[in-house]
């Protein structure tokens, strides 16, 4: 039955997308969870919706328009949080709402009906076009390169930003690079699970991995593997039971989280005995 599924080209594309998503969520998710930027990723992903709406309005590829949009959103949140006397979570809340609202209004202004909109909200891994796969691949390479070049520094900044600054680590540029990576990864994830479920993929695999390992490289590797297993399991389940793939993947992630918590609970007392 498994091979039967891969006879469909859309399933093959879905599998490739799943692999790329897992790498993204493993790497960026680790950075987000370590630096405690989960809520910010939520804000960025929702403001990316404005970019998608704008794409419809301009008649361009919505993902291409969403890239600069979510990049701008992440940098804006960062700037407001750092410079102005507004706390970061307020900045996130405002951009979250404004991004969503502007997306809806752009779509309203677009002549005719926007048929794919639902897929951006809740994800549709089964209909990922080859062109989008290529964009995802390039973005993934960018994210991986930045991560591999500066993982020591990201680790140090997440642990103790003030100390890193005092040591001469270029904290500010790296912080904005990190925000940029979140923006890019959100665009990648939108295709698969949709804006609403992005946070799940960015956090749950890392949180599961943190129960069993530490160290930024090990964490991102373990998160990628966890993410991959969960996405593919979710993909198969959604195919078998004819469910929305994005939502199914998230339910699988949640189940994996529960199971990992149970395993951890069972393992710890045994070790102490």
């Amino acid at each position: 039955m498994i091979f039967e599924i891969f006879a469909y080209s859309f399933m093959r594309n879905a599998l490739i997308a799943a692999i790329m998503v897992s790498v993204t969520c493993g790497v960026v998710g680790t950075l987000i969870v370590l630096k405690k930027l989960v809520f910010m990723s939520g804000g960025i992903s929702h403001s990316a919706f404005g970019g998608i709406g704008l794409g419809y309005l301009l008649g361009l590829n919505p993902v291409l328009v969403a890239i600069p949009f979510s990049l701008a959103a992440s940098l804006t949140i960062g700037l407001i949080g750092r410079r102005a006397r507004v706390s970061e979570d307020v900045a996130i809340g405002v951009l979250w709402a404004v991004g969503m609202a502007s997306g809806i209004i752009f779509v309203n202004l677009t002549p005719g009906y926007a048929p794919d909109l639902f897929s951006y909200l809740f994800g549709s891994i089964l209909t990922v076009p080859v062109f989008d796969l290529m964009i995802m691949f390039i973005l993934n390479m960018v994210i991986l390169t930045v991560f591999l070049l500066f993982h020591k520094e990201f680790y140090a900044i997440s642990f103790d930003e003030e100390f890193a600054t005092a040591s001469g680590v270029p904290v500010k540029p790296l912080y904005y690079a990190l925000l940029g990576m979140i923006g890019l990864s959100v665009v990648i994830l939108i295709r698969v699970v949709g804006i609403i479920l992005v946070i799940a993929l960015l956090t749950i695999p890392t949180v599961i991995s943190m129960k069993f390992t530490h160290g930024i490289i090990k964490l991102s590797f373990a998160s990628s593997i966890t993410g991959l297993i969960c996405t593919i399991t979710g993909l198969f389940l959604s195919y078998i039971f004819n469910l929305t793939s994005g939502a199914t993947i998230v339910m699988v992630l949640a189940a994996a989280f529960l199971i990992s918590t149970l395993i951890k609970r069972l393992r710890v007392p045994r070790k102490k005995l």
Binding site: F150, E153, F159, D160, F163, S167, G168, V169, H214, L219
Partner: peptide
């Protein structure tokens, strides 16, 4: 924070000199 003692101490060596090096 998930980090070992050794890795904490190693961050004390970071700075411009160690950028792009392991």
């Amino acid at each position: 924070f998930p980090i070992t003692v050794l890795n904490v101490v190693l961050t004390g060596l970071l700075g411009r000199r160690l950028l792009l090096k392991s």
